[in-house]
Design a protein around this nucleic acid. Structure first.
Lengths: 167, 167
DNA sequence: GATAGTAGTTGCAGAATACAACCACTCTTG
DNA sequence: CAAGAGTGGTTGTATTCTGCAACTACTATC
């Protein structure tokens, strides 16, 4: 596919501008789903297997994911590249906009709200953690738990609070 | 269309996740194209008239644009709503990613680079200017030129520099 | 009243997408 | 070593989306 223009916004849209690619990346990043089955069955939107297969090929071709060497029928692990990790600000911006301007379930909105509350530096922290998980980067010296764990903990606490509020 | 899930990221993707919607918004925001013909002929990617008509209807239905009252055949002006203005961070994130990870023409990349150089506060400034232009918000007391003019001036200067460099 | 310009609509062909069923291979378990 | 579950897909078919060209309805200008 030759690009329709030399505009960097268009270049990004040509790779990521469809109904599934960014959702697959969301599940890889936030759901830590690294295998075909995990992505297929874990997708709350219910992606079809051929669409998932097609998008994985495209994302690998675009250099956003890498596919571990595995023959047919073997478990192939997908990892983010640096360019894949750097789609996080895009996903974050989309999530914030959706949170503000579109309806949605409260449970799924909490996480986005918590992430926003953490401030912009937190995105960098998440990206560093993704480098450790996907690029085998050396982990930064870090005493406490990682940013994903903090988000999980905050989410659990908020969900608990929601539960308390309902009573 | 009922949403496929309550996820805010999915909610945004369902409205903006296609090959044209975000490019139309880009042209409205950065090209200040407010009329059908301007969007149709000004699109460097060459959008077809029925696709543009369809996307404008969808963006209006989604509350991202408003359409000035005009009968068929009459000049109808499209304006951004507040939710439309707040898609700017998404477009900015996409442009930055495209700049870093995809090829593109130098001329069109310069503008994205300049915008990034201005820092995050500049995005807020651009959004304020869009509120003046599209929501008829009172302009902020401001001595110099607006942010779009500054971007234009920086672009002109950079383009001139490019021209000098080539000699 | 002709002409150019406005904002679309219509018809049609080809591409992309979605859904369900099926396939080939491997790994585990008895 | 045979059965069964689990892996990552492929295939077929129907539907939707997209792109191109031509056309329509209306308005403003000369």
């Amino acid at each position: 596919m030759e690009p329709r223009s030399g505009c960097p916004i268009n270049a990004a849209v040509e790779v990521l501008g469809d109904r599934w690619s960014l959702l697959v990346l969301r599940d890889v990043i936030f759901g830590d789903r690294r295998y075909f089955r995990a992505l297929l069955t874990g997708s709350i939107e219910g992606i079809a297997s051929n669409i998932l297969a097609d998008r994985l090929v495209r994302l690998v071709d675009a250099g956003i994911l890498t596919r571990g060497t595995a023959a047919r029928g073997q478990r192939a692990r997908y990892s983010l590249t640096e360019s894949g990790i750097q789609t996080l600000p895009i996903i974050y911006a989309l999530g914030n906009w959706g949170l503000d301007w579109r309806p949605g379930s409260d449970e799924l909105r909490i996480r986005q709200q918590l992430m926003r509350d953490e401030g912009p530096a937190f995105i960098e922290e998440l990206m560093d953690e993704l480098r450790v998980r996907h690029l085998d980067a050396p982990p930064k010296p870090h005493d406490g738990s990682g940013p994903f764990e903090r988000l999980d903990a905050a989410y659990a606490a908020a969900a608990e609070q929601e539960h308390v509020d309902q009573r």
